[in-house]
Design a protein around this nucleic acid. Structure first.
Length: 971
DNA sequence: GCTATGACGTA
DNA sequence: CGTACGTCATAGCG
């Protein structure tokens, strides 16, 4: 059937929905913790079901619709197969309780739903598909159950949720053929052979889709395969013959009934009146926000009937997305030469004057940072307004690889506020237009918006262009708005924040008519050109930035963006460009040595085990340790297997002294673990050295860690060993480059504790820091009520562990474990500690309780993190969220302070004309490569920048060390 | 090729 | 039964 035929028929499709399977898929796809009402009613399945339905209705415009449900009490299938859908029967109460809500939802919208005693929803759907066909409708079956595939034909398409729940796969006969290599009629044969895990139906062991399809295509259909079972060779043939009975049963069970008497005709299934008041009453009960309501109701063409109730809704959207995103690929103007480019800029972009006027309205760093010293409220009160991006900003988007030290620009796209765009290929950017672009950037960058300032700096630098700080970075803005969402790329961020579904070409599904009914047409649609992709992307940047701007303003985070995050990007770009010089010979020597030690240990382990076990395979180790050697397991992993982690091995080692073979094996295994890990670290470092300059250019991720910290990848230079002497050696391979003299390491002492002292206002803790004495000893003397001289090393270390554990939400159980004391003793320490530092206790409690009320925590600079888990009714989930909520403002404020310190330090170095550079940041430590003769000056400048990053109630203490390599710079 | 898991390195 | 990360290797899927 062609698209033309459908239009000729003059009516929209019939949509039939498998209510149960959709609810199941929604339930398991969406985190129940984020979808629970304040009285504990889970709503994730209702939400997913409703959103899905609304999206499908919007896209497909059906004129008839019906939802089928299973009925309690089982079906003829259960009589044939006692275990049938056993896994589903055991559905959690959290899901079952939502089914009546879904039916209630349908009632309020006058959508027909049908259940029939003794039959499944599937049979109702099969029947409806047949009825639809007879009545001349094309039919869409929305179902998460693969059994529905057998219904697909020229008039019936199955919409099947894929790995990502909301991404529907259009299962036409062609699509089924392509995926399973059988036709829809034969699909149930294939399913009978393979079995269905989710329905508790066993298939032939070891046989999946591939083999089932091979057999079916060889012999024709299931009966033919079973008739020829003798001919099938190998283990799989044997397995097949063993379960012929089961397979025949499977096939009977998965056949859908298609001729039930439902007591309705297709023409009865039109859309009825929407009971607006009932819908709203239901949505109130479900605590759906205004955005969710609008989105759902939009599908039912009644968005204008609905007035928001003012419930909080974090996914609040801008106007254009609420009324439906009208996405259009911008049109590119041709620019052949420099004159045309310059003329285009003059005509379409904000002028240099307008750009610099915009720069004048930006906040100054110093007063903002000072104000934060008086508390977050004071800082937020003077948060600057963000300019109206849609009128005052232009957009720049570069394509290519932004890898530090190896960046490559491919294409540059510019979008003007008036909608005009240009696309420039690398040859132009690096060639003819280079000079004109440099001027354009210098003059107009302060009105520019990008997605990923840091990446863009690398990309443009690859084309010989410098990129000064733009007006707005949508990537950083998105990170501030929702730090727990990790955008993999621009498309994902766009789709996430604007709630847009993307198709396979990473283009948004347009609201109406975008989904052609015919699968063929989709397949034939032309792939977008590189230029179209580039134009789409710059448009995504525009829409995303305009969407995020009001959210940033509403939270008063524009200063955080402009004064901390964007300048941090500048510093990080410099660090990534500079890279860290390593001594390859030294690394090679260490690698060989670690390798040799690992091999020795392995030889001993293999000898004692009596076989060549792979010591890096927990699975194989479990067998040797707990089966062959018969050792008693210490603890289980989260999946129920026995743990072979170092702590368990250590305990096994200590308790196996009588058993020489096991003891030797464990000792060798532990040594192998340690040395082999070090070997791997050394090897991965060597692999990432850039051959052009002998330096390692890590990438600092600025939008990954939800607390506001940086992370380091490719390679991770924030986890180079430091605890054990052997591992620490690796640090000696990090050395100053040729034009430099030494490495300087500066780190904050006890920043997080100092932040706690400041934020809690606890006088005793503040005095402890002001005293300048050995902090942990001082605290111990207070906690134990003795003089400093009387504090034993044990007491000091116990108090130290307690202090550090505070910011993590450490339990007394955990403390006891760590200190190797009884829980009772740990509890005594805890009470003594908190009676000494009462305000710290109150502060930590207030963090969690405030977060429970507000739903989020804030750092001293207003960086937020949301904690939906605090409202979970599952204790473990909730307590985990409580610990994270306790930690986030402390870890996050430390991150804010370090970012400011980095910006200040780099600024001071530049002001003083120093050649020394920051090369690494390890959360509370900065490593600098120091130029000749600058040691003293740089130490002073950086120390000062760090110590005076912000003004707290306690001093910030920085300790420094300098040396010929990173290890020697330790202090 | 992909994803999940267990292990382990850092602050 | 402490937070926050990234990477390696294996193992199972295809």
């Amino acid at each position: 059937m062609s698209g033309a035929d459908q239009k000729a028929s003059g009516k929209g499709p019939l949509l039939v929905v498998d209510g149960h399977s959709l609810a199941f898929r929604a339930y398991y796809a969406l985190p129940v913790d984020s979808f629970t009402t304040s009285n504990g009613q889970p709503t994730n399945a209702v939400w997913g079901f409703a959103i899905m339905l609304s999206e499908v209705i919007t896209a497909e415009q059906p004129t008839r619709m019906c939802v089928a449900f299973d009925m309690a009490g089982g079906t003829f299938r259960n009589k044939m197969m006692p275990g049938y859908k056993g896994t589903r029967q055991a559905a959690p109460e959290e899901l079952l309780s939502q089914l009546p809500l879904i039916q209630n939802f349908l009632e309020t919208l006058s959508v027909r739903y049908i259940e029939k005693q003794g039959y499944e929803g599937d049979d109702i759907i099969g029947t409806l598909a047949t009825m639809g066909e007879d009545a001349g409708y094309r039919t869409l079956v929305l179902s998460g159950d693969r059994d529905a595939f057998q219904l697909a034909d020229d008039h019936v398409t199955v919409l099947f949720p894929g790995y990502h729940f909301r991404q529907l796969k259009r299962m036409t006969p062609e699509a089924i053929q392509e995926k399973y290599h059988v036709s829809p009629e034969v699909y149930p044969d294939l399913a009978a052979l393979r079995g269905e895990q989710s329905d508790n139906i066993p298939g032939v062991p070891g046989v999946g889709d591939t083999f089932a399809a091979r057999w079916l295509n060889e012999y024709g259909d299931l009966e033919a395969v079973l008739d020829n079972a003798e001919k099938i060779k190998g283990k799989k043939g044997e397995a097949l013959r063993k379960c012929i009975g089961q397979i025949r049963l499977n096939r009977k069970v998965n056949a859908l009934v298609r001729d039930l008497d439902l007591g309705v005709t297709v023409d009865d299934l039109g859309f009825g009146r929407i009971h607006t008041d009932k819908v709203n009453a239901l949505f109130d009960r479900l605590e759906f926000g205004s955005h969710t309501r609008n989105k759902i109701l939009k599908g039912f063409n009644c968005v204008e009937d609905f007035e928001g109730t003012g419930l909080p809704d974090n996914s609040k959207k801008t106007d254009e997305s609420e009324t439906g995103l009208a996405f259009q690929t911008p049109k590119a103007d041709p620019v052949e030469d420099v004159e045309a480019f310059e003329a285009w800029c003059r005509e379409h972009l904000p002028s240099p004057k307008e750009s610099s006027e915009l720069a004048e309205t930006m906040p100054d760093a110093e007063p903002v940072i000072q104000a934060a010293g008086d508390g977050l409220k004071a800082a937020q009160a003077q948060d600057t307004a963000c300019p109206d991006l849609s009128k005052q900003s232009w957009y720049l988007h570069a394509e290519g690889s932004s890898k530090p030290g190896a960046a490559k620009l491919e294409r540059l796209t510019v979008l003007a506020p008036d909608g005009h765009a240009i696309v420039l290929e690398d040859q132009q950017v690096s060639g003819d237009l280079n000079q004109a672009l440099a001027t354009m950037l210098a003059e107009r960058i302060s009105s520019c918006t990008v997605y990923g300032y840091k990446e863009h700096t690398h990309l443009l630098s690859a084309a010989g262009l410098t990129l000064p700080m733009p007006l707005f970075d949508a990537k950083l803005a998105g990170y501030l708005v929702e730090p727990d969402f990790h955008a993999v790329d621009l498309e994902k961020a766009f789709a996430h924040f604007l709630h847009v579904l993307m198709n396979d070409d990473e283009q948004p599904e347009v609201e109406q008519g975008a989904l052609d009914f015919d699968g063929d047409e989709d397949a034939e649609r032309d792939k977008p050109t590189d230029e179209q992709i580039a134009l789409n992307r710059v448009e995504y940047v525009r829409l995303l930035a305009e969407h995020l701007k009001p959210l940033i303003e509403e939270r008063r985070q524009f200063n955080l963006l402009r004064i901390i995050e964007m300048p941090t990007s500048t510093v990080l770009t410099g660090m990534e460009d500079q890279g860290a010089k390593v001594d390859l010979d030294r690394l090679k020597g260490m690698g060989d040595q670690f390798g040799a030690e690992a091999q020795e240990a392995q030889a001993i382990a293999w000898d004692r085990a009596g076989e060549e076990v792979n010591l890096q395979s927990p699975k194989q180790l479990q067998k040797v340790l707990f089966e062959d050697l018969g050792l008693k397991p210490i603890k289980r992993t989260k999946n129920g297997s026995y743990s072979t982690n170092a702590a368990s091995l250590q305990r096994l080692y200590l308790t196996s002294v009588g058993n020489e073979r096991a003891n030797d094996f464990l000792g060798a295994l532990l040594r192998h673990r340690e040395t082999n890990k070090l070997k791997q670290i050394v090897n991965s470092l060597m692999e990432t050295v850039n051959p052009r300059d002998g330096r390692i250019h890590t990438t600092f991720e600025q939008t990954v860690a939800a607390t506001g910290r940086l992370s380091s990848v490719d390679p991770n230079l924030q986890n180079i060993p430091n605890k054990n002497a052997a591992g620490r050696e690796i640090r000696s391979a990090f050395v100053p480059g040729e034009r430099f003299e030494s490495l300087l390491s500066c780190d904050y002492s006890q920043v997080e504790l100092r932040i706690m002292a400041d934020l809690s206002g606890d006088e005793a803790l503040i005095d402890a820091f002001k005293s300048g004495a050995d902090f942990h000893k001082y605290v111990a003397s207070l906690v134990y009520g003795i003089s400093m001289d009387e504090v034993t090393p044990d007491q000091r270390s116990h108090v130290k562990a307690m202090s550090y554990g505070l910011a993590y939400g450490l339990s007394t159980y955990g403390l006891a474990q760590q200190l190797n004391v009884s829980p009772a003793e740990a509890d005594v320490l805890r009470s003594q500690y908190f009676s000494t530092f009462g305000k710290v206790h109150d502060y930590l409690e207030s963090l969690v309780s405030d977060a429970s009320v507000k739903g989020y925590t804030e750092t001293i600079f207003g960086r937020r993190r949301y904690f939906p888990g605090l409202r979970s009714k599952r204790r473990t989930t909730r307590e985990a969220a409580e610990r994270a909520a306790l930690n986030a403002p402390i870890q996050g404020s430390a991150a804010d302070i370090m970012k400011i310190a980095m910006i200040k330090a780099q600024h001071s170095l530049a002001q003083a004309g120093c050649k020394s550079r920051i090369i690494l940041q390890i959360h509370d430590e900065l490593v600098l490569e120091v130029a000749h003769g600058e040691q003293e000056q740089v130490t002073d400048l950086v120390t000062d920048a760090m110590e005076h990053a912000v003004k707290l109630a306690v001093p910030l203490d920085v300790s420094t060390g300098i040396g010929a390599d990173w290890q020697q710079a330790a202090h």
